[in-house]
Design a binder for these strands. Structure first.
Lengths: 138, 138
DNA sequence: CGTGGGTTTGACAATGGTTCTCAACATCGC
DNA sequence: GCGATGTTGAGAACCATTGTCAAACCCACG
Protein backbone atom coordinates (compact mmCIF):
# COMPACT_ATOMS: atom_id res chain seq x y z
CA UNK A 1 0.00 0.00 0.00
CA UNK A 2 1.17 3.52 0.72
CA UNK A 3 4.72 3.03 1.85
CA UNK A 4 5.45 6.70 2.25
CA UNK A 5 2.58 7.95 4.31
CA UNK A 6 4.19 11.23 5.21
CA UNK A 7 1.42 13.80 5.47
CA UNK A 8 2.87 16.22 3.00
CA UNK A 9 4.07 13.89 0.31
CA UNK A 10 1.72 13.34 -2.56
CA UNK A 11 3.98 10.53 -3.72
CA UNK A 12 1.39 7.81 -3.57
CA UNK A 13 2.52 6.53 -6.94
CA UNK A 14 5.26 4.06 -7.44
CA UNK A 15 5.51 4.24 -11.18
CA UNK A 16 8.51 2.54 -12.56
CA UNK A 17 9.09 2.91 -16.26
CA UNK A 18 8.97 -0.67 -17.44
CA UNK A 19 8.77 -2.09 -20.90
CA UNK A 20 5.18 -3.18 -20.26
CA UNK A 21 3.97 0.20 -19.12
CA UNK A 22 5.58 1.82 -22.09
CA UNK A 23 3.83 -0.64 -24.36
CA UNK A 24 0.46 0.19 -22.86
CA UNK A 25 1.12 3.89 -23.24
CA UNK A 26 2.17 3.37 -26.85
CA UNK A 27 -0.99 1.42 -27.56
CA UNK A 28 -3.11 4.13 -25.96
CA UNK A 29 -1.46 6.69 -28.20
CA UNK A 30 -2.49 4.68 -31.24
CA UNK A 31 -6.25 5.28 -31.12
CA UNK A 32 -8.60 7.96 -29.98
CA UNK A 33 -11.82 6.13 -29.37
CA UNK A 34 -12.72 3.93 -26.43
CA UNK A 35 -11.39 0.38 -26.34
CA UNK A 36 -11.78 -2.50 -23.96
CA UNK A 37 -8.82 -3.80 -22.00
CA UNK A 38 -8.75 -6.91 -24.12
CA UNK A 39 -8.71 -4.93 -27.35
CA UNK A 40 -5.83 -2.92 -26.01
CA UNK A 41 -4.09 -6.12 -25.05
CA UNK A 42 -4.53 -7.45 -28.60
CA UNK A 43 -3.25 -4.19 -29.99
CA UNK A 44 -0.08 -4.51 -27.97
CA UNK A 45 0.48 -8.04 -29.19
CA UNK A 46 -0.04 -6.90 -32.74
CA UNK A 47 2.56 -4.21 -32.21
CA UNK A 48 5.04 -6.94 -31.39
CA UNK A 49 5.19 -6.43 -27.66
CA UNK A 50 4.05 -9.04 -25.22
CA UNK A 51 2.34 -7.93 -22.04
CA UNK A 52 0.21 -10.04 -19.77
CA UNK A 53 -3.47 -9.26 -19.67
CA UNK A 54 -3.39 -8.78 -15.92
CA UNK A 55 -0.65 -6.22 -16.36
CA UNK A 56 -2.70 -4.36 -18.94
CA UNK A 57 -5.55 -4.19 -16.45
CA UNK A 58 -3.25 -3.07 -13.66
CA UNK A 59 -1.64 -0.41 -15.78
CA UNK A 60 -4.89 0.93 -17.14
CA UNK A 61 -6.38 1.11 -13.66
CA UNK A 62 -3.47 3.00 -12.25
CA UNK A 63 -3.40 5.34 -15.20
CA UNK A 64 -7.08 5.97 -14.71
CA UNK A 65 -6.54 6.66 -11.06
CA UNK A 66 -3.79 9.07 -11.99
CA UNK A 67 -6.19 10.79 -14.32
CA UNK A 68 -4.24 10.01 -17.44
CA UNK A 69 -6.87 7.86 -19.07
CA UNK A 70 -10.63 7.91 -19.05
CA UNK A 71 -12.46 4.79 -18.08
CA UNK A 72 -16.14 4.44 -18.61
CA UNK A 73 -18.58 1.64 -19.12
CA UNK A 74 -20.40 0.83 -22.31
CA UNK A 75 -24.02 -0.19 -22.33
CA UNK A 76 -23.08 -3.76 -21.44
CA UNK A 77 -21.22 -2.68 -18.34
CA UNK A 78 -17.79 -3.43 -19.73
CA UNK A 79 -14.98 -1.06 -18.96
CA UNK A 80 -13.61 0.85 -21.92
CA UNK A 81 -10.61 3.17 -21.93
CA UNK A 82 -8.77 5.85 -23.78
CA UNK A 83 -6.19 8.48 -23.03
CA UNK A 84 -7.71 11.81 -22.26
CA UNK A 85 -7.12 15.44 -21.82
CA UNK A 86 -6.71 16.49 -18.23
CA UNK A 87 -9.87 18.48 -17.75
CA UNK A 88 -13.08 17.01 -16.51
CA UNK A 89 -15.38 16.24 -19.39
CA UNK A 90 -17.91 13.84 -20.80
CA UNK A 91 -18.29 11.88 -23.99
CA UNK A 92 -20.44 11.47 -26.99
CA UNK A 93 -19.73 7.96 -28.16
CA UNK A 94 -20.81 6.21 -31.34
CA UNK A 95 -22.51 2.98 -30.47
CA UNK A 96 -21.33 1.36 -33.68
CA UNK A 97 -17.77 2.46 -34.37
CA UNK A 98 -16.76 3.96 -31.06
CA UNK A 99 -15.94 7.38 -32.48
CA UNK A 100 -15.77 9.74 -29.56
CA UNK A 101 -16.29 13.42 -29.08
CA UNK A 102 -15.15 14.97 -25.85
CA UNK A 103 -17.63 17.46 -24.56
CA UNK A 104 -17.65 19.81 -21.64
CA UNK A 105 -20.66 21.01 -19.79
CA UNK A 106 -20.03 23.50 -17.04
CA UNK A 107 -23.78 23.85 -16.74
CA UNK A 108 -24.12 20.17 -16.05
CA UNK A 109 -21.42 20.21 -13.42
CA UNK A 110 -23.14 23.05 -11.68
CA UNK A 111 -26.46 21.33 -11.92
CA UNK A 112 -25.28 18.05 -10.42
CA UNK A 113 -23.56 19.84 -7.57
CA UNK A 114 -26.65 21.85 -6.82
CA UNK A 115 -28.93 18.82 -6.87
CA UNK A 116 -26.63 16.84 -4.62
CA UNK A 117 -26.20 19.68 -2.17
CA UNK A 118 -29.93 20.16 -2.04
CA UNK A 119 -30.32 16.60 -0.83
CA UNK A 120 -27.33 16.65 1.49
CA UNK A 121 -25.21 14.21 -0.49
CA UNK A 122 -21.45 14.53 -0.17
CA UNK A 123 -18.38 13.04 -1.73
CA UNK A 124 -19.82 13.20 -5.19
CA UNK A 125 -19.02 11.62 -8.46
CA UNK A 126 -21.15 11.48 -11.53
CA UNK A 127 -21.33 9.85 -14.89
CA UNK A 128 -22.75 11.44 -17.98
CA UNK A 129 -22.24 9.76 -21.28
CA UNK A 130 -24.16 10.14 -24.47
CA UNK A 131 -24.44 7.21 -26.85
CA UNK A 132 -25.67 7.55 -30.39
CA UNK A 133 -24.95 6.79 -34.00
CA UNK A 134 -22.40 9.04 -35.65
CA UNK A 135 -22.97 10.61 -39.06
CA UNK A 136 -20.67 8.11 -40.76
CA UNK A 137 -22.33 5.04 -39.35
CA UNK A 138 -25.84 6.03 -40.26
CA UNK B 1 -42.60 -1.02 -28.01
CA UNK B 2 -45.91 -1.48 -29.83
CA UNK B 3 -48.28 -3.81 -28.05
CA UNK B 4 -50.57 -4.55 -30.94
CA UNK B 5 -49.18 -4.75 -34.42
CA UNK B 6 -49.54 -6.39 -37.77
CA UNK B 7 -50.70 -10.05 -37.83
CA UNK B 8 -47.70 -11.34 -39.68
CA UNK B 9 -45.03 -9.88 -37.44
CA UNK B 10 -43.53 -12.07 -34.80
CA UNK B 11 -44.93 -11.28 -31.39
CA UNK B 12 -41.98 -10.91 -29.13
CA UNK B 13 -44.34 -9.77 -26.40
CA UNK B 14 -45.02 -12.86 -24.41
CA UNK B 15 -46.12 -11.76 -20.99
CA UNK B 16 -47.99 -14.39 -19.10
CA UNK B 17 -49.01 -13.73 -15.54
CA UNK B 18 -47.12 -16.39 -13.67
CA UNK B 19 -46.46 -16.88 -10.00
CA UNK B 20 -42.81 -16.00 -10.55
CA UNK B 21 -43.49 -12.74 -12.32
CA UNK B 22 -45.91 -11.74 -9.64
CA UNK B 23 -43.27 -12.47 -7.03
CA UNK B 24 -40.73 -10.27 -8.78
CA UNK B 25 -43.28 -7.48 -9.07
CA UNK B 26 -44.11 -7.83 -5.39
CA UNK B 27 -40.47 -7.67 -4.43
CA UNK B 28 -39.98 -4.58 -6.57
CA UNK B 29 -42.86 -2.94 -4.78
CA UNK B 30 -41.13 -3.55 -1.47
CA UNK B 31 -38.26 -1.13 -1.80
CA UNK B 32 -37.56 2.16 -3.48
CA UNK B 33 -33.81 2.21 -3.88
CA UNK B 34 -31.73 0.37 -6.40
CA UNK B 35 -30.99 -3.31 -5.81
CA UNK B 36 -29.00 -5.88 -7.67
CA UNK B 37 -30.71 -8.86 -9.25
CA UNK B 38 -29.27 -11.11 -6.60
CA UNK B 39 -30.56 -8.93 -3.79
CA UNK B 40 -33.98 -9.00 -5.35
CA UNK B 41 -33.71 -12.76 -5.63
CA UNK B 42 -32.89 -13.01 -1.93
CA UNK B 43 -35.77 -10.72 -1.10
CA UNK B 44 -38.17 -13.00 -2.91
CA UNK B 45 -36.88 -16.03 -1.03
CA UNK B 46 -37.26 -14.19 2.22
CA UNK B 47 -40.85 -13.42 1.30
CA UNK B 48 -41.48 -17.14 1.09
CA UNK B 49 -41.63 -17.46 -2.66
CA UNK B 50 -39.11 -19.43 -4.61
CA UNK B 51 -38.03 -18.15 -7.99
CA UNK B 52 -34.95 -19.17 -9.92
CA UNK B 53 -32.23 -16.60 -10.32
CA UNK B 54 -32.33 -16.90 -14.09
CA UNK B 55 -36.02 -16.13 -14.03
CA UNK B 56 -35.41 -13.07 -11.93
CA UNK B 57 -32.94 -11.86 -14.51
CA UNK B 58 -35.28 -12.63 -17.36
CA UNK B 59 -38.18 -10.89 -15.70
CA UNK B 60 -36.21 -7.83 -14.74
CA UNK B 61 -34.81 -7.49 -18.23
CA UNK B 62 -38.16 -7.70 -19.87
CA UNK B 63 -39.66 -5.27 -17.39
CA UNK B 64 -36.82 -2.89 -18.12
CA UNK B 65 -37.41 -3.23 -21.81
CA UNK B 66 -41.07 -2.51 -21.24
CA UNK B 67 -40.08 0.60 -19.34
CA UNK B 68 -41.55 -0.55 -16.07
CA UNK B 69 -38.30 -0.66 -14.17
CA UNK B 70 -35.13 1.36 -14.30
CA UNK B 71 -31.88 -0.46 -14.80
CA UNK B 72 -28.60 1.25 -14.36
CA UNK B 73 -25.09 0.28 -13.49
CA UNK B 74 -23.26 1.09 -10.31
CA UNK B 75 -19.64 2.08 -10.29
CA UNK B 76 -18.55 -1.54 -10.52
CA UNK B 77 -20.56 -2.13 -13.65
CA UNK B 78 -23.16 -4.27 -11.96
CA UNK B 79 -26.76 -3.89 -13.01
CA UNK B 80 -29.09 -2.51 -10.38
CA UNK B 81 -32.83 -2.15 -10.64
CA UNK B 82 -35.92 -0.59 -9.23
CA UNK B 83 -39.43 0.15 -10.32
CA UNK B 84 -39.79 3.63 -11.68
CA UNK B 85 -42.14 6.35 -12.55
CA UNK B 86 -42.80 6.59 -16.24
CA UNK B 87 -41.12 9.88 -16.96
CA UNK B 88 -37.55 10.12 -18.03
CA UNK B 89 -35.33 11.02 -15.13
CA UNK B 90 -31.98 10.47 -13.48
CA UNK B 91 -30.80 9.40 -10.06
CA UNK B 92 -28.83 10.52 -7.10
CA UNK B 93 -27.70 7.31 -5.48
CA UNK B 94 -26.01 6.74 -2.15
CA UNK B 95 -22.88 4.74 -2.66
CA UNK B 96 -23.19 3.14 0.75
CA UNK B 97 -26.83 2.36 1.40
CA UNK B 98 -28.34 2.74 -2.04
CA UNK B 99 -30.83 5.42 -1.01
CA UNK B 100 -32.08 7.01 -4.20
CA UNK B 101 -33.49 10.35 -5.16
CA UNK B 102 -35.13 10.66 -8.53
CA UNK B 103 -34.19 13.89 -10.19
CA UNK B 104 -35.27 15.53 -13.38
CA UNK B 105 -33.20 17.85 -15.44
CA UNK B 106 -34.91 19.32 -18.44
CA UNK B 107 -31.86 21.49 -18.87
CA UNK B 108 -29.67 18.43 -19.13
CA UNK B 109 -31.93 16.79 -21.66
CA UNK B 110 -31.85 19.88 -23.77
CA UNK B 111 -28.12 20.10 -23.44
CA UNK B 112 -27.42 16.53 -24.50
CA UNK B 113 -29.72 16.84 -27.48
CA UNK B 114 -28.05 20.03 -28.56
CA UNK B 115 -24.57 18.60 -28.23
CA UNK B 116 -25.46 15.47 -30.14
CA UNK B 117 -27.20 17.39 -32.91
CA UNK B 118 -24.23 19.67 -33.22
CA UNK B 119 -22.04 16.67 -34.01
CA UNK B 120 -24.58 14.92 -36.18
CA UNK B 121 -25.24 12.00 -33.86
CA UNK B 122 -28.62 10.33 -34.05
CA UNK B 123 -30.56 7.66 -32.22
CA UNK B 124 -29.49 8.95 -28.87
CA UNK B 125 -29.46 7.58 -25.42
CA UNK B 126 -27.65 8.93 -22.45
CA UNK B 127 -26.78 8.07 -18.92
CA UNK B 128 -26.48 10.54 -16.11
CA UNK B 129 -26.19 9.28 -12.61
CA UNK B 130 -24.85 10.98 -9.55
CA UNK B 131 -23.22 8.92 -6.84
CA UNK B 132 -22.47 10.25 -3.39
CA UNK B 133 -22.82 9.65 0.30
CA UNK B 134 -26.21 10.46 1.74
CA UNK B 135 -26.64 12.50 4.93
CA UNK B 136 -27.43 9.40 6.98
CA UNK B 137 -24.39 7.45 5.91
CA UNK B 138 -21.89 10.17 6.59
C1' DC C 1 30.07 -3.66 -11.45
C1' DG C 2 27.78 -7.02 -7.94
C1' DT C 3 24.30 -7.38 -4.55
C1' DG C 4 20.02 -7.03 -1.97
C1' DG C 5 15.49 -5.60 -1.30
C1' DG C 6 11.37 -3.86 -2.77
C1' DT C 7 8.49 -3.59 -7.22
C1' DT C 8 6.48 -5.62 -11.14
C1' DT C 9 5.21 -9.24 -14.01
C1' DG C 10 2.84 -13.30 -15.98
C1' DA C 11 0.62 -17.70 -16.14
C1' DC C 12 -3.09 -19.43 -14.14
C1' DA C 13 -6.69 -20.01 -10.81
C1' DA C 14 -10.51 -18.01 -8.82
C1' DT C 15 -14.49 -14.81 -8.65
C1' DG C 16 -18.80 -13.30 -9.59
C1' DG C 17 -22.37 -11.45 -12.39
C1' DT C 18 -25.01 -12.78 -16.24
C1' DT C 19 -26.69 -15.77 -19.89
C1' DC C 20 -27.51 -20.30 -22.04
C1' DT C 21 -29.42 -25.06 -22.22
C1' DC C 22 -33.02 -28.07 -22.21
C1' DA C 23 -36.18 -31.13 -20.08
C1' DA C 24 -40.13 -30.58 -17.12
C1' DC C 25 -43.98 -27.66 -16.37
C1' DA C 26 -47.74 -24.06 -16.45
C1' DT C 27 -51.16 -21.28 -19.34
C1' DC C 28 -54.10 -20.33 -22.91
C1' DG C 29 -57.41 -21.02 -26.52
C1' DC C 30 -60.51 -24.27 -27.83
C1' DG D 1 -59.69 -31.80 -20.85
C1' DC D 2 -56.15 -31.29 -24.59
C1' DG D 3 -52.56 -29.95 -27.28
C1' DA D 4 -49.52 -26.07 -28.63
C1' DT D 5 -46.63 -22.87 -26.92
C1' DG D 6 -44.63 -19.79 -23.57
C1' DT D 7 -42.03 -20.28 -19.01
C1' DT D 8 -39.23 -22.10 -15.46
C1' DG D 9 -35.20 -23.94 -12.86
C1' DA D 10 -30.86 -26.22 -11.95
C1' DG D 11 -26.78 -26.09 -13.32
C1' DA D 12 -23.31 -25.43 -16.82
C1' DA D 13 -21.21 -22.11 -19.56
C1' DC D 14 -19.39 -17.50 -20.36
C1' DC D 15 -16.40 -13.87 -19.80
C1' DA D 16 -14.55 -9.70 -17.87
C1' DT D 17 -11.93 -8.80 -14.09
C1' DT D 18 -9.07 -9.68 -10.01
C1' DG D 19 -6.15 -12.49 -6.92
C1' DT D 20 -1.95 -15.54 -6.24
C1' DC D 21 2.76 -16.11 -5.86
C1' DA D 22 7.18 -17.39 -7.53
C1' DA D 23 10.33 -15.59 -10.83
C1' DA D 24 12.18 -11.50 -13.21
C1' DC D 25 13.32 -6.86 -12.92
C1' DC D 26 14.80 -2.11 -11.48
C1' DC D 27 17.34 0.75 -8.68
C1' DA D 28 20.30 2.44 -5.04
C1' DC D 29 24.12 1.53 -2.67
C1' DG D 30 28.49 -0.31 -1.60
Amino acid sequence: MTSTDAPGTTQTQQRRPTRQRRAVAAALAGFDDFRSAQEIHDLISRQGDSVGLATVYRTLSSLAEAGEVDMLRNEDGEAIWRSCSDTHHHHLVCRTCGATVEVEGPAVERWTNAIAAEHGYADLSHTLEIFGTCPTCR
